[in-house]
Design a protein around this nucleic acid. Structure first.
Lengths: 139, 139
DNA sequence: GAACGCCTTGATACTACGTATCGATACCCA
DNA sequence: TGGGTATCGATACGTAGTATCAAGGCGTTC
């Protein structure tokens, strides 16, 4: 999980400030645990204006501090990014409890190449999401 | 692309009817080409009620006639499914023109097994979306 | 410390996307 | 002919997120 110091440095490098509302939203997201919706963040930080909650979440997404996970039904859930996986990663989502776990994808390059060949596309990025049941929901 | 006859059979097998509004929505989607949003379908079939447009699109999604594609920014786009790929497939999306192409994934099982091992999840389904530039946008 | 400029904020309105409700119709089958 | 179910459109509602805008905060420079 990215520390406040790291985030503050990233922000100021881009000309942004770590203000009190932003800090509140960040702390709220930390307090919400593994995954959370925009609505939950709003409800859990009532002292921050709705627009500011969304603005902050958008900003954090751009900075890679949180990442968006699209559930099977198309709704969006968010998650604090692991600091050591801030780069490129994917998600396994428990369809029972909603738990989200990250993983790095290394074995995908071959598949991407094959699809590029087959379709004529030049592939830039990809998104892979797995759905299933986590260890504790499974037992 | 699935024919009206095939769709009608699928519907009636499930106790549904291929009514005139449904046919209109289907034709509209065909007319919109490779990919379309819910809004485009609505605007292009003004004689059909808004609720019916959504209901029909939901039904067609359940029947596998159309499939939902989540774009990089989280918005949803829809596409008529290839008849021969109605089962399980993924999408390559051109970030320039929006063109969506389907492909079947065969080389993913190993990766899925590895992630299951690593995370303790039991994987049921997955969603893979590739983003890039299609052949014509690339030239 | 005054002035300036930019970042930020909260309130509000707005849009997109989709679902729930409901009374009215249409169709099928006995 | 009559009942039952599927379907319809209108409308209201809910959620997620963006746009606008006036007001406030903070740093820099003079």
């Amino acid at each position: 999980m990215t520390t406040a110091d790291t985030i503050e440095r990233t922000l100021s490098r881009r000309g942004y400030r770590l203000t009190s509302p932003r800090r509140t939203v960040l702390d709220t997201m930390r307090g919400l645990g593994n995954h959370f919706t925009a609505e939950e963040v709003q409800h859990a930080s009532p002292e921050v204006g709705r627009a500011t909650v969304f603005r902050t979440m958008k900003l954090m997404r751009e900075l890679g501090v949180i990442c968006q996970v699209v559930l099977d039904d198309g709704t969006a859930v968010y998650q604090l990014a692991d600091e050591d996986r801030a780069d490129h990663h994917h998600h396994v989502i428990c369809t029972e409890c909603g738990r989200v776990t990250e993983f790095a994808s290394d074995g995908l390059e071959g598949e991407l190449e094959r699809v590029a060949d087959e379709t004529g596309f030049e592939i830039d990025t990809h998104r892979l999401e797995l759905y299933g049941r986590c260890a504790s929901c499974n037992s």
